[in-house]
Every structure is written in structure tokens, then in C-alpha cells.
Computed example of a mutant assay.
Amino acid sequence: MTATAISYGHVTRVPVHFDDLDALGVLHNARYAVLIERAMINWWAERGVSFAGGRPTTSDAFNVVREYAITFHLPVRGTGEILVHFWLDNLGRTSAAYGFRFTSLDGETVFAEGRRVNVLLDPATMRPRSWSDEGRTLAETLLRG
């Protein structure tokens, strides 16, 4: 599976480092959340939606994880690179429901897959707010189907 082979979402290589492994020499379950977070943050940052100097670069950067679920199929053994494929299943007025999977570099082995829901917040009230037109346009490029 490569970036050109997918028909929706985004695929990126992520490194698995020695300190990501548990005592059994496999990717620790908690590290999957970190790896999907980094993959998604990098995608958004490449499009100008990030944080600089402790402040959001756009209003769409101020969002939080509301829900996270993952199913593990096979362990990632040892260090090296794996693929993270993520996409949007639904883009609501104030939320975005992502799907994701972790695979081998050839895309043949699915190690884990899951769902993550982010909610955009107003920094002053900490209440949900609507995505900007620019943020919505960017996010729509990740929609599945």
C-alpha cells in the first residue's frame, strides 16, 4: 500500500523505535495512540494547521480527542517502519470521525485498526465550535467514499 495506491485518506510511514516496544519486544499498546496522533498532526501541519509558540496557527488547530477505540490483530514485532492509513468517515459541524489502520509496508498485514473522534473547541469557552470553511475544505479531502 502506497500513497498512490489508496483511493481515500492518507497513508504515511512511521518509525517504530526501541523505546516504543514492551517487554515482549512488540509495539506497546499505548504507542499506537501516539503514532496515529503524530501521523495526523503531521498531515494537518503540512497544510498550515498546527501550533507555533504555544498558539494555534488557525482556529481549526484547537481540537481534542473525544473518543478513541482500537482493535489489535497482530503484534508489530521489533523496530522499523510501518504504515499508518487514516481517513475521515464523517465530518460533522464540530467533529470529525476518523478511521485508521496500521499495516506492514506492503499493506498486506493489518496489525491494528480503529476509530478516533476529534471535536473542535472554542479556546475561550472550551465548548464545541464549527470548523472554518478552510478547515472543512482540507478535511473533506480525507473523506472515505
Score class of each variant (00 low, 15 high):
Val64Trp: 06
Gly48Arg: 10
Arg116Val: 14
Ile6Trp: 03
Ser104Trp: 01
Thr71Phe: 01
Thr103Met: 07
Asp19Val: 06
Leu83Asn: 15
Asp133Trp: 00
Ser130Ala: 15
Leu138Glu: 08
Arg47Leu: 10
Val117Asp: 10
Thr141Ile: 02
Leu142Ala: 04
Phe18Asp: 03
Ile41Glu: 08
Leu83His: 14
Val117Cys: 03
Leu24Pro: 00
Val26Tyr: 07
Arg136Glu: 10
Ala39Gln: 06
Thr94Ile: 01
Val11His: 02
Glu140Gly: 06
Ser104Lys: 05
Leu27Met: 09
Phe72Arg: 04
Asp106Ser: 10
Glu81Thr: 07
Leu142Thr: 02
Glu113Ser: 15
Ala33Val: 11
Tyr98Leu: 07
Gly99Ala: 04
Ala97Tyr: 02
Thr125Ala: 11
Gly107Trp: 06
Thr57Ser: 09
Glu108Cys: 00
Gly54Ile: 09
Val65Pro: 05
Asp60His: 11
Phe86Lys: 01
Ile36Lys: 01
Ala5Gly: 10
Leu121Met: 12
Arg66Thr: 11
Ala23Asn: 06
Leu24Val: 05
Ser59Gly: 12
Arg115Leu: 05
Tyr8Pro: 02
Asp19Trp: 09
Trp131Phe: 15
Val11Ser: 12
Asn118Tyr: 02
Ala112Gly: 11
Val64Lys: 09
Glu108Tyr: 00
Arg31Met: 08
Asn90His: 14
Pro56Met: 07
Thr79Ile: 13
Leu120Phe: 02
Thr4Ser: 14
Phe102Thr: 03
Val110Gln: 08
Tyr98Ile: 05
Ala30Ser: 15
Phe100Thr: 03
Val16Gln: 03
His17Met: 09
Glu46Tyr: 00
Asp122Arg: 00
Ala52Thr: 05
Leu143Ile: 12
Gly78Asn: 04
Leu120Val: 04
Thr94Val: 10
Ala3Gln: 12
Ala30Val: 15
Gly78Cys: 06
Ala69Asp: 10
Asp106Gly: 11
Gly78Ala: 10
His85Tyr: 02
Gly99Asp: 05
Pro56Glu: 14
Glu37Ala: 15
Gly9Lys: 01
Gly135Asn: 05
Val119His: 05
Gly145Glu: 11
Ser104Tyr: 02
Met40His: 06
Gly54Cys: 04
Ala39Thr: 11
Val49Leu: 05
Gly99Lys: 03
Thr4Ala: 13
Val65Gly: 13
